[in-house]
């Protein structure tokens, strides 16, 4: 089975982030957590069904080196090929990115393409579905487990409320992963450093087409929530709380 996993980087929220009118300037980038799960599930599928895993790091020119460590991490865990897709684009429209990536992926012969189902940067979460649309492939999101039975994929998907749905889907297909079926594999420091030295990363430039769509006009910081401390004995407190809840129309 020829497997691909998409790995994006997102701003590291542990560090400071500056929000300017038309730009978000993070201090550092980190692998998108759901994509790390997508890579993990891709490697699990390889263990189950055999084949190879290519990891496709998706970055912009200015974040190109930020994906090196996450790619090396995937290599240390058993990924076969590492590709760095450097986007050249003018806008942040995800549909355009999906189109650009689809153009690159379409003749690569992948049986399954994994993406994380979401990203902290809300624009990126829809990539899996859009990619499927552009490539005319089936898409299943909310994936928590993947098996192969008689050449078809059997996929467990979260339906909410604790329910799981089981789907059969023929390959090629695109799967959006919520979480891999086992915890992310730990990679010791020395092994990661070794992988960073040894791993061979192929670079490709992805021409992102410009298509009319929604533009970002301005970024805002979310308003700081107002905190009011209620004081008094329990009875008074309960009364005040009821008042407040009525005010905000919860009661």
């Amino acid at each position: 089975m020829k497997i691909c996993a998409v790995l994006r980087v997102v701003p590291d929220l542990v560090e400071e982030i500056e929000i300017e009118e038309t730009e978000i300037v993070p201090f550092a980038y980190i692998a998108n957590e759901r994509d790390e799960h997508a890579v993990e599930e891709a490697l699990i599928l390889k263990e189950k069904a055999g084949g190879s895993v290519d990891v496709l790091g998706v970055v912009d020119e200015d974040t190109a080196s930020d994906v090196d460590e996450p790619l090396a991490m995937a290599y240390a865990k058993g990924a076969d090929n590492l590709i760095k897709a450097i986007l050249s684009r003018k806008t942040f429209r995800r549909y355009e990115v999906a189109k650009g990536l689809a153009e690159f992926l379409k003749d690569k012969g992948y049986d399954v393409i994994f993406t994380g189902i979401q990203a902290i940067d809300a624009f990126a979460g829809t990539l899996g579905g859009m990619l499927a649309r552009c490539m005319n492939l089936p898409y299943i999101g909310g994936v928590v487990e993947v098996d192969v039975q008689n050449g078809t994929l059997v996929v467990k998907k979260e339906l909410g409320g604790g329910l799981l749905g089981e789907y059969r889907v023929s390959t090629p297909a695109i799967l959006g992963v919520v979480s891999a079926e086992r915890p992310l594999k730990f990679v010791p420091f020395a092994k990661l450093k070794k992988a960073m030295k040894e791993a061979n990363i192929d670079e490709v430039d992805i021409e992102v087409p410009e298509i009319e769509g929604i533009d970002v006009l301005r970024y805002y910081e979310p308003p700081k929530p107002e905190i009011t401390l209620l004081e008094g004995d329990p009875e008074e407190l309960a009364e005040k709380l009821v008042e407040v809840l009525k005010e905000v129309s919860v009661l």
């Binding site: 992310l184 594999k185 730990f186 990679v187 010791p188």
Partner: peptide
């Protein structure tokens, strides 16, 4: 260290 190399130490510790 062998557990770490196998990739499966207890999660909080990892």
């Amino acid at each position: 260290e062998l557990s770490l190399l196998e990739g499966n130490p207890p999660e909080e510790l990892a």
